[in-house]
Simulated scan of single mutants.
Amino acid sequence: MAVVKRADARRNHARILEVAEAEVAAHGADASLEKIARVAGVGSATVRRHFPGRRELLQAVFAQRIGALAEYAVELAADPDPRRALVLWLEAFTDYGTSSRGMAGALVAEGLVEDGDDEGCTVRLSAAAAPLLERAARAGAVAPGVTTEDLLALVTGISLATEGRPDPAEQGRRLLRLTLEGVLAPR
C-alpha cells in the first residue's frame, strides 16, 4: 500500500528541494543542511525526515534538475534543426552544471549514482541526450563516433574546470563553444 503524504508534508518537501537547489547553486554540494532548513522555514528534523542525509538530499536536488533537463530534451526533439536542438540542450546542461557548484563532482563521485540505477543522474542524462545526438548524427551534424558519454564527460569537465571562477556560466559557455567546434561536423 502506497503512503500518501499530507499536503503540508508535500509542501515542505517541495520547499526544502527549492531552497536546497538555490543553496547548492550558491555554496556547492557542501551547502549547510541547517541553513537549508532555516531558509525553508522548517526544522532540521523535518529536513532529515524527508532526506535522512546529505547524499539523499543532493540526489533529490540533482534528480529534480535532471528531470527538467530530460523534459527539455523531449521538447527539443521537435526542433526541425537537429544540430540546434543538440546545442541548445548542451548549453542548458552546461548552464546548470556551471551554476550548481558541486554537481559535476557529485555526478562523477562514486556512490552518488550507482551502477544499474535507472533513476541515476548519469543514466537519465544519457537517455535524454541520446535521441538528440542520434538525430544530429543522422543529419550529419556531428563528427562520426561521438557518443552521449563523450558529451556528458565534456560538459562535466567544463563544469569542473569552471568551478570557483568569477563567472563560471560565461566561462562554461565559452568552453562549450570551443568544444563544439571539435564535436560538430562543419556546416
Results as ranks from 00 to 15, higher is better:
Val3Asp: 11
Ala22Asp: 12
Glu23Asp: 10
Glu23Leu: 07
Val24Cys: 06
Val24Gly: 04
Ala25Arg: 15
Ala26Arg: 15
Ala29Glu: 08
Asp30Glu: 08
Ala31Asn: 02
Ser32Glu: 06
Lys35Arg: 15
Gly41Val: 07
Gly43Ile: 10
Arg49Gln: 04
His50Lys: 12
His50Asn: 15
Gly53Tyr: 00
Arg55Glu: 13
Leu57Asp: 01
Leu58Phe: 08
Leu58Ser: 11
Leu58Glu: 11
Ala68Lys: 06
Ala68Asn: 04
Leu69Ile: 04
Ala70Pro: 02
Ala70Tyr: 05
Ala70Asn: 01
Ala73Val: 05
Glu75Asp: 14
Leu76Tyr: 03
Pro80Phe: 07
Arg84Cys: 03
Leu86Val: 10
Leu88Ala: 10
Trp89Thr: 04
Phe93Ile: 08
Tyr96Cys: 12
Ser100Pro: 05
Arg101Val: 07
Gly102Asn: 10
Met103Ile: 06
Met103Arg: 03
Ala106Gly: 14
Ala109Asn: 06
Ala109Arg: 11
Ala109Gly: 07
Glu110Leu: 12
Glu110Gln: 13
Gly111Lys: 04
Asp115Val: 14
Gly116Phe: 03
Gly116Leu: 01
Gly116Asn: 04
Asp118His: 09
Asp118Arg: 15
Cys121Ala: 15
Thr122Leu: 13
Ala130Arg: 09
Leu133Val: 05
Leu133His: 03
Glu134Val: 06
Arg135Ala: 10
Arg135Cys: 01
Ala136Thr: 09
Arg138Glu: 11
Gly140Val: 04
Glu149Lys: 05
Leu154Thr: 15
Thr162Gln: 07
Gly164Glu: 11
Gly164Asn: 08
Gly164Met: 09
Pro166Tyr: 01
Asp167Gly: 00
Ala169Thr: 12
Gly172Thr: 08
Leu175His: 03
Leu175Asn: 04
Leu176Tyr: 01
Arg177Gln: 15
Arg177Trp: 13
Arg177Cys: 11
Leu178Val: 15
Thr179Asp: 09
Leu180Phe: 06
Glu181Arg: 12
Glu181Cys: 07
Gly182Leu: 09
Leu184Tyr: 03
